[in-house]
Simulated assay, not measured.
Amino acid sequence: MSTAPAPSPTRRQAQKSERRADLIEATIDCLAKHGYEATTVAVVAEAVGMSRGIVNFHFDTKQKLLLATLRHLSDEYRAHWRAALTAAGPSPAARLWALAAADFDKRVCTPRKLAAWCAFWGEAKSRPTYREMCGANDEEYQGTVIELCTALAPPGRDPVRLARGIVCMLEGLWLHLLMAPRDVSREEAREVALSQLRTLLPQHFGPDGPVAAEIGEAAP
């Protein structure tokens, strides 16, 4: 009686990675639906249609599963805004514009991901590991905004305060999208953020974004 060949080590590793990814996505869904405390290994297992034993094979505790989920969200968000900066080119104005717009891209800004982020933020104060992971991401992001504002702020304007205001504005819009989704759409939130850049730095941003001179084009 013939039997199917055993999966190769490469295929087994791919299957393991796929299972872990499925569990992380299910955890994001559970955090959004049930909140932090009610998201247990059993709840995630039921949501993804796996036995608890299989879940425990990949993540033997709730904390390990949640930490992997937070790391996934952090890595995804960091890679997203870094890619937006790279695509924007060298102009500080174009880079700041791209950074603000990237926060409202549907790849990172969805109701379920915003809810998961909020669940982790609520726990970060009492969990050093969460605080460290979120803090490292925030520090790099804020440092980038400060660097861009230093290049763009007019004489006499404090670039650090300007940068902090922009970051707080973006975070506030994320929170508003989570708490009052009927009041503002993701697209509208993006336009609000870009409108604020125009207001804060009118010499660098016009109705269509960075002015021509800022992006290396001939001025009209």
Rank of each mutant, 00 (worst) to 15 (best):
S2L: 15
T3N: 08
P9G: 01
Q15S: 05
S17T: 03
E18I: 08
E18G: 10
D22C: 13
E25C: 06
A26R: 07
A26G: 13
I28E: 07
D29Q: 05
D29G: 14
K33D: 15
H34G: 12
Y36M: 06
E37K: 15
V41N: 14
A42E: 10
V43T: 05
V44S: 12
A45W: 00
A45E: 10
G49K: 11
G49L: 03
G49T: 03
S51F: 00
S51I: 00
S51V: 00
G53D: 06
N56A: 02
F57W: 01
F57D: 01
D60Q: 08
K64N: 05
L66Y: 03
L67G: 01
T69H: 04
L73C: 05
E76C: 02
H80Q: 13
H80A: 08
A83R: 13
A84Q: 09
T86F: 10
T86P: 07
A88T: 10
P90K: 06
P90R: 04
P90V: 14
S91R: 06
P92Q: 13
P92G: 14
R95M: 09
L96N: 01
L96F: 01
L96G: 04
L99H: 08
A102C: 14
A102T: 15
A102W: 05
A102D: 12
D105R: 01
R107Y: 03
C109D: 11
T110Q: 05
P111D: 03
R112E: 05
A115I: 00
A115T: 02
A116W: 00
W117Q: 06
W121I: 04
G122N: 07
E123D: 13
E123R: 15
S126R: 15
R127G: 00
T129D: 15
Y130L: 06
Y130F: 04
M133G: 07
G135C: 09
G135A: 11
N137C: 10
N137G: 09
N137T: 08
N137F: 10
D138Y: 06
E139Y: 11
E140W: 14
V145I: 13
V145F: 13
C149V: 10
P154N: 09
P155R: 10
G156A: 14
G156C: 15
R157Q: 14
R161L: 13
L162D: 07
R164C: 08
I166N: 11
V167P: 03
V167G: 04
M169T: 13
W174A: 15
L177Y: 00
P181F: 00
D183N: 07
R186K: 04
E187D: 10
E187F: 02
A189L: 08
A193Q: 02
A193H: 02
Q196V: 12
T199F: 11
Q203M: 02
H204D: 05
D208R: 11
D208S: 14
G209R: 13
G209D: 04
A213N: 03
E214D: 12
A218Y: 10
P220K: 07
